[in-house]
Amino acid sequence: MTRAYKIPESVLVVIHTPALDVLLIERADHPGFWQSVTGSKDHPDEPLGETCAREVREETGIVIGSPAVPADALRDWQLANLYEIYPVWRHRYAPGVTQNTEHVFGLQVPAGTAVALSPREHTASVWLPWREAADRCFSPSNAEAILQLPRFAQGGAKPTP
């Protein structure tokens, strides 16, 4: 049996309301580590929009393409971060892989959108004003993405095909 390694290409989805409240979720494997939805491609040819939809559904129960959250609510911010994978998580990647490319997206949902966490991955969720959310993130790239939310929420992003 061969071990399936994670692909070092992922998405970061900043889920927010029209009022710019941001959803953060706490990692089950590291209490106190708050983040937006993130996740790697399942296979190298998986379109990034599909990766976003899958990860958002798996981690929060929010369904992109539903009546409450139409497909065009997902916006590609056309940003990519190249970062060093934290040593604690490198065992998930093929030997020698130390960097990941993270593509940033925004997802606007209605205020009051219910969240159903995957308990295997996350233990708590909170909606916070965008600046507070950025301050709570453990990941610098996630915090930076949230700080850019006002710019992208005002039309500075493209609909995801």
Rank of each mutant, 00 (worst) to 15 (best):
A143H: 07
V11I: 13
L147V: 09
S141A: 08
A134Q: 12
S118F: 09
A133G: 00
G112N: 01
E55V: 06
N100C: 14
E50V: 04
S66M: 04
A80I: 03
L23T: 01
T60P: 00
V69A: 00
L12K: 09
E84W: 15
S125K: 07
T17K: 08
R75F: 07
E132N: 15
H91I: 06
I7L: 15
Y86R: 12
K158G: 05
T101C: 07
E132Y: 11
R57F: 08
N100Y: 05
N142T: 13
P70G: 10
H103R: 10
S66H: 01
F138M: 07
G156D: 08
S36N: 15
R90M: 11
D42Y: 12
A73E: 02
Q99D: 11
V104N: 09
T98C: 14
V104R: 10
G32Y: 02
V69R: 01
R131A: 14
P110Y: 01
A114I: 00
R136M: 11
A19Y: 12
L48I: 05
E50S: 08
A4V: 08
G96W: 12
A28W: 04
V115R: 01
P18W: 12
P87R: 05
V109F: 04
K41R: 12
R151E: 09
T113M: 06
C137R: 05
A53K: 08
M1D: 09
P18V: 13
V11M: 00
H30W: 10
I62S: 03
A28V: 04
F33D: 10
H30V: 09
A53L: 00
Q148A: 15
H122F: 15
Y93M: 07
H43A: 11
D135G: 14
